[in-house]
């Protein structure tokens, strides 16, 4: 596993889930009500992005040019330590707003962890199950793009993906796309409509969850009609090879 690729996943896919968490989970939304603060994550030789909390909403923007609180990390490994709890970040600016970082933001990440690494009993609640699965769906789509752009083997797979959008969808849930251009992948977290060249669709949210959790097999699911593929299958084929590596990074 490559530390730099993991850093891109941790920032763009894991922390990048916080805006969606704040939209979907009332408890998270409440934590950012009335807040006007932005936190920048600046990883040397790695990614940089800012979480902006304003007007009761959260957004994720690339770069750290306009952040209030800046968290510099001397290496991808140090940043990855923030996510697995072995590194304590020290802000380089924004000490007056550190309270949000220490209290609200920490609570937000705790809630996120509950949804991304749920207790089996929590999944018995249908609403929690749905929210958790949708968050995971977008996280996986984002991680897929990051692996295709940064991991050596992922880049090899991406080198075989022709230009176009690969739609990934859950039958009774959300849709997203991986947009490929010159073998660089970009996750699009909204339904591409008819603008796609291939598609991989999970029958329903239960099937999606079972696939994410490794409880069912994707190849068998295609034969059973639980996963449908169509269009430029070579794109889907290579995306699936990257998907295989998502599990490696997210375990």
């Amino acid at each position: 596993m490559d530390a730099k690729t993991l850093a891109y996943i941790n920032l763009n896919a894991i922390l990048g889930s916080i805006p969606r968490l704040c939209e979907m989970v009332p408890e998270a939304k409440k934590l950012i009500e009335g807040k006007d603060v932005s936190i920048g994550f600046d990883v040397k030789d790695g990614p940089a992005a800012t979480l902006v909390f304003k007007d009761g909403k959260c957004s994720f923007v690339e770069g750290v040019n306009n952040c209030d609180v800046k968290l510099p990390f001397s290496s991808p490994e140090k940043f990855n330590g923030l996510i697995d709890g072995t590194t304590t970040p020290i802000p380089s600016k924004g000490f007056t707003k550190i309270g949000f970082l220490l209290k609200n933001f920490t609570k937000l990440t705790d809630i996120l962890t509950n949804y991304l690494q749920p207790e089996p009993s929590a999944l018995k609640d249908p609403k929690f199950f749905e929210t958790s699965t949708i968050l995971m769906f977008h996280l996986i789509v984002e991680a897929l793009a990051q692996i295709g752009n940064h991991d050596d083997i992922g880049k090899f797979s991406a080198s075989y993906i022709t230009d176009g959008a690969i739609k990934v969808a859950i039958g009774d849930g959300p849709a997203a796309a991986i947009d490929a251009k010159n073998h660089v992948l970009k996750a699009i977290h909204e339904d591409p409509g008819d603008n796609y060249t291939s598609c991989m669709e999970f029958k329903d949210i239960r099937v999606a969850r079972d696939l994410f959790d490794g409880n069912i097999n994707a190849v068998a699911s295609i034969g059973q009609g639980k996963v449908r593929i169509r269009g430029m299958i070579s794109q889907v084929d290579n995306v699936n090879r990257i998907l295989d590596r998502v599990a490696l990074y997210l375990t």
Partner: peptide
């Protein structure tokens, strides 16, 4: 010879 690698689209 399986439906996935054989690209049986749609499976039905």
């Amino acid at each position: 010879q399986g439906p996935a690698e054989g690209c049986y689209i749609p499976i039905e």
